[in-house]
Amino acid sequence: MRLGDGIFFLIAGPCVIESEDLVLKTAEQIARIAAAHKVPLIFKSSYDKANRTAVSSFRGMGMEEGLKILQKVKEKVGVPVLSDVHGPEEATAAAEVLDVLQIPAFLCRQTDLLLAAGKTGKVVNVKKGQFLAPWDMANVVEKLESTGNRKIFLTERGASFGYNNLVSDMRSLVIMRRTGYPVVFDGTHSVQLPGGGGKVSSGQREFVLPLTRAAVAAGCDGLFLEVHPSPDQAPSDGPNMIDPGQLNQLLGQVGRILRALEDGGER
């Protein structure tokens, strides 16, 4: 049985790889929390954040060093790993380590990237662009399926709503599920305020938990949550990331919602 086919799952980790020590310690902590709540974990951290607000923004440790660190997460923590890929050649190289290739939201319509990711045979998680309607993701799915790959996740991360603002439309989860593939709700990027800090993006962390609870109740198959031990000191996405304590609290709430849905015959 695949994740999403009756098995609720979690994608979580720091926004960007800052150091080997931080990544390994955070992965171990998140893995313990996920195991306590009996939620399968895919660890996420980006070796390169190519879409940053300013040229001076921290992007990560780069693909070569980042993949070495993610390989250590696989070996020492024993969980699958995910990172963003930005070009066709990069997808092929990254697939040697990554279990899940993530297509960033702003690249979700890049045909050559999607085809290259699909051809690796790895799971491909596509973030829905902030500029796309949920039904437009059917075309993204068609591109991936053309490679023979059926291991696909679709992730909702909010839609542009005026300047420096996003809104989460829960209908999107239902609509994208009609493609037949698992749909993930990105609870942390959905509260981001893109470019809202001038040369950095801002965010509204206080809305992560309520929006995530709503998405679970609406029927998503998994969650994407960026988790950092000290979000306010993080060099990327700090204002919208949560800490491990908040993750533990949220997964407890999610478990109760899922049980209520099962009791009502909704899952």
Rank of each mutant, 00 (worst) to 15 (best):
M1T: 15
R2H: 10
R2D: 14
L3F: 04
L3E: 08
G6H: 11
I7K: 15
I11T: 05
V16L: 05
L22W: 03
V23I: 14
L24F: 11
T26H: 01
T26P: 07
E28R: 14
Q29C: 10
A31S: 15
I33Q: 06
I33H: 08
A35E: 15
L41A: 10
L41I: 14
S45R: 01
S46H: 06
S46E: 06
D48K: 04
D48R: 01
T53C: 03
T53P: 06
A54R: 05
S57Y: 00
F58Y: 15
F58C: 00
R59W: 08
G60F: 01
M61G: 02
M63Y: 00
E65K: 13
L67V: 05
K76A: 07
V77S: 13
G78C: 14
V81F: 05
L82H: 03
L82W: 04
D84E: 13
P88Q: 08
E89V: 05
E89K: 03
E89P: 01
A91F: 02
A91D: 08
T92Y: 01
T92S: 06
A94E: 10
L98C: 11
Q102C: 10
L107W: 04
T111H: 13
D112Y: 02
D112V: 02
L113G: 14
L114K: 04
L114A: 07
L115T: 15
A116W: 01
A116I: 07
A117Q: 02
G121T: 11
K122M: 04
V123A: 06
V124S: 03
V126C: 06
V126P: 02
K127L: 11
K127D: 11
K127S: 08
K128H: 07
G129A: 05
F131H: 10
L132W: 00
L132F: 03
A133M: 14
D136Y: 04
D136P: 10
M137L: 14
M137K: 09
A138I: 09
V140P: 00
V141N: 09
K143Y: 02
L144I: 15
N149H: 01
K151C: 00
G162W: 09
V167I: 15
D169R: 09
M170Q: 03
M170G: 05
S172W: 01
R177Y: 05
P182Y: 03
T188W: 00
H189R: 00
S190W: 03
P194C: 02
G196M: 12
K199I: 13
V200M: 04
S201C: 13
G203S: 09
G203V: 09
R205K: 13
P210T: 15
T212N: 11
T212E: 07
R213G: 05
R213I: 10
V216A: 03
V216S: 04
A217M: 12
A217N: 11
A217V: 12
G219F: 13
G219R: 12
D232E: 15
Q233I: 08
Q233F: 10
P235H: 00
D237S: 08
G238K: 02
G238Q: 02
N240H: 14
N240R: 08
Q246M: 13
Q246N: 01
L251Q: 06
G252N: 08
G252W: 01
Q253S: 11
Q253E: 15
I257Q: 07
L258R: 14
R259F: 03
A260E: 12
L261C: 03
D263G: 09
D263T: 13
G264Q: 13
R267T: 11
